[in-house]
Design a protein around this nucleic acid. Structure first.
Lengths: 130, 130
DNA sequence: CTATCTGTTATATATATTGTATAACAGATA
DNA sequence: TATCTGTTATACAATATATATAACAGATAG
């Protein structure tokens, strides 16, 4: 399992950090569909947090369609394809981008500057090896 | 003052919604530097929320450099120029963009699709009238 | 069969965040 | 003097976050 670093001082709750890191791992292909994840107890122990904190992250990921959870077998990255880009998702994405972009405009950032930053981050997920 | 709509069912706290809407108003040039904002009590009354909720939003905006607050005169959009694009801001922006982009990659969105959405939102802030 | 591993569920507790409700203060102003 | 600023203080309630234990049922390894 990929090492998962937490920032206990972050204003982002631990369970959300875990969720985001796993999604990032999938996007980076460090985690591949069908791959198993540590049990809630094992990951909690590794991270030094409570079992329920990890469980909450797993439940959210399951709810979003990123994970399959078999009651006795364990947790697996969804093997049948990732969640899709539907209208609900697009709306949420736009609503989360809006305040970021408003602020960048206020601060005098140009569209090109903002797009450049997005482009750079997107570049992290390009096929490098392979 | 621009009408400011709140979503009481949102998972975004009211004081953050107020903050974001005011920043959006500045980005849209509906609010211009030097322009006065309603008093904490007046805006709270308009929105149907508590005085302290508005005050919290104003304090955050002051802290970020968007507002000037004169103890007896009232609240004014910073007339001396908006906060700048410094390294602290850039780091925060990237950290907030990262999970959004990770998720879009997981869902199979192309870079072009993501950039297009950003471009469209950025377009809302272009000089149209004038 | 027994022990151990799953996820799940339940209960309890502690703390921080969010939001409201009042009240009072000092300075400016009409 | 009365009224408007922002500010500060206190109290309260509801919710969110995180932890600590415990127990359950099913699968599996010894």
């Amino acid at each position: 399992m990929v090492i998962l670093e937490l920032d206990l001082n972050s204003d982002t709750p631990i369970y959300l950090q875990i969720k985001e890191k796993i999604i990032e791992g999938i996007a980076l292909k460090q985690l591949v569909p069908g791959e198993g994840l540590p049990s809630v107890r094992a990951l909690a122990s590794d991270l030094g947090v409570n079992m329920h904190t990890v469980n909450k992250a797993y439940q959210l990921l399951k709810q979003d369609g990123y994970l399959l959870i078999h009651r006795q077998k364990g947790v697996v990255i969804q093997p049948e394809g990732m969640p899709s880009v539907d209208n609900d998702y697009l709306e949420k994405l736009k609503n989360r981008l809006q305040p970021l972009i408003s602020e960048s405009v206020c601060r005098g950032m140009t569209s090109e500057q903002f797009m450049r930053i997005c482009h750079d981050i997107l570049g992290q997920f390009e096929e490098k090896g392979e």
